Simulated scan of single mutants.
Amino acid sequence: MDSTPRRRLWRDSPVSETSLSTVLEAILFGAGRSMSVAELAELLERPQAEVQSALKDLQVTIRRRRDSALQLTEVAGRWIFEVRPSLSPHLPESFRADIPQRLLPAAALIAYHQPMAQSQLVDMLGQRAYDHVRDLANTGLIGRRRDGLTRRLTTTRRFAEYFGCPEVEYRKVRTWFRKEAAKMGLTSAQLAASLAPDEQLTISEFSEEEEVESEPLEVEE
């Protein structure tokens, strides 16, 4: 997605020190990679000193979160979310430290609209959605359950731990994810596209008429 609208949003909407930390958390969460203070300052059109201070505050806030699986780390002047070292021994060998950028849009859409019909994801992402669902399921980040001719997709505990979500139950994860997107002023399609800018994706907006609240799903994690 073109970054111009987002830059206009930050410029036209003054960010207080408190909300700047929240915006930085959303950006680093969505980026899925390390970012320098200079990159963040340019994106937000804020002074580097202000961004650096907000990152330090955010780091303290995350450190104080009870039972958080993630920590905000500064490595060689770049900031990134990573799993706390104390949890590493508990992670399965198949766990991947990083999710390929190409999978982030599908992961975001599923989290936002779960329990999401796989057919709806295909409508939004095209045929690539089938491969992305398979890869996300193989990493243990989503669960799949048959629902007629399609599948219902939901996030798992591992998804919540990976993205630092304070909730695990899929409906609560959905609520949390939507709030994070709302803070950035983005629809689900806009958020998904922004997570993989190199892919230059064209993502259709979600049809609310097709959003169905089903009974709780027992999804294996």
Rank of each mutant, 00 (worst) to 15 (best):
R78L: 06
E169C: 15
S36P: 02
K183W: 08
P100H: 13
I80F: 02
K179W: 10
A196T: 07
L186H: 00
A97W: 11
R146Q: 13
Q127M: 12
Q200R: 12
S86N: 07
R65G: 11
R174F: 01
A97P: 09
F81D: 02
R8P: 05
E221V: 04
R145V: 11
K56P: 04
D147R: 07
R6W: 07
T61N: 09
T61Y: 12
Q118T: 13
D2G: 12
V168A: 15
P85M: 04
P14L: 12
L103T: 15
R145Y: 02
L149C: 00
L217Y: 02
S119N: 11
A137K: 12
V75P: 01
Q59N: 07
R152N: 06
A108H: 11
L58Y: 00
S53C: 13
I110H: 02
A108S: 15
F206A: 03
A137M: 09
M1S: 13
P216V: 06
L217G: 00
T139N: 09
R46G: 09
R64S: 06
H113N: 01
T150D: 10
L217D: 00
E161F: 11
D123A: 08
E45M: 12
S214A: 11
Q52L: 11
E42S: 15
L72K: 13
A31S: 12
R178P: 01
Q52Y: 09
A181R: 06
G126T: 04
R171E: 10
L125T: 11
A76G: 00
D198E: 02
A41I: 10
L58R: 06
L91N: 04
E50Q: 15
R171A: 13
G164I: 06
Q71L: 14
E211W: 01
T61A: 14
A26N: 07
T187M: 03
P115D: 15
A181Y: 03
R174D: 03
